[in-house]
Deep mutational scan, measured.
Amino acid sequence: SEEEEEEWRRAKERGEEIIILGILWKPNDEEAERRIKEALRRV
């Protein structure tokens, strides 16, 4: 969703871990980033 995407962007800017759509994303975690982008597209 729009607000999840916004939340994720803010976490990326701050360089902090975030759990979004049930996926743990850490800074520079390209695999998780790809999965999150896929999940955001499906929503």
Rank of each mutant, 00 (worst) to 15 (best):
S1G: 15
S1T: 14
E2M: 14
E2Q: 14
E3T: 13
E3S: 15
E4H: 13
E4F: 15
E5Y: 09
E5W: 10
E5T: 06
E5S: 03
E7R: 15
E7N: 14
W8T: 05
W8E: 05
W8H: 06
W8D: 04
R9M: 13
R9C: 12
A11L: 11
A11S: 06
K12N: 05
K12P: 01
E13S: 10
E13K: 06
E13P: 00
E13M: 09
E13G: 04
R14D: 08
R14I: 11
R14G: 06
R14N: 11
G15T: 02
G15P: 02
G15M: 07
G15N: 09
E16A: 08
E16W: 07
E16G: 06
E17V: 11
I18L: 05
I18S: 04
I18W: 05
I18D: 02
I18A: 06
I20S: 01
L21D: 03
G22Q: 02
G22H: 00
G22L: 07
G22Y: 07
L24V: 07
L24K: 13
L24M: 08
L24Q: 08
W25H: 01
W25S: 01
K26P: 05
K26F: 08
P27L: 00
P27V: 01
D29P: 01
D29K: 00
D29M: 02
D29E: 02
D29Q: 02
D29N: 02
D29F: 02
E30K: 09
E31T: 09
E31Q: 08
E31P: 02
A32G: 03
A32K: 01
A32I: 04
E33Q: 04
E33T: 09
R34D: 10
R34E: 12
R35T: 08
R35M: 13
R35D: 07
R35Q: 13
I36V: 13
I36M: 05
I36R: 01
K37E: 15
K37N: 14
K37S: 08
E38V: 02
E38S: 03
E38I: 07
E38L: 00
A39T: 04
A39E: 10
A39M: 09
A39C: 07
A39K: 08
L40D: 02
L40H: 07
L40V: 08
L40E: 03
L40F: 04
R41Q: 12
R41N: 11
R41P: 04
R42G: 12
R42Y: 07
R42Q: 14
V43P: 08
V43E: 13
V43Q: 13
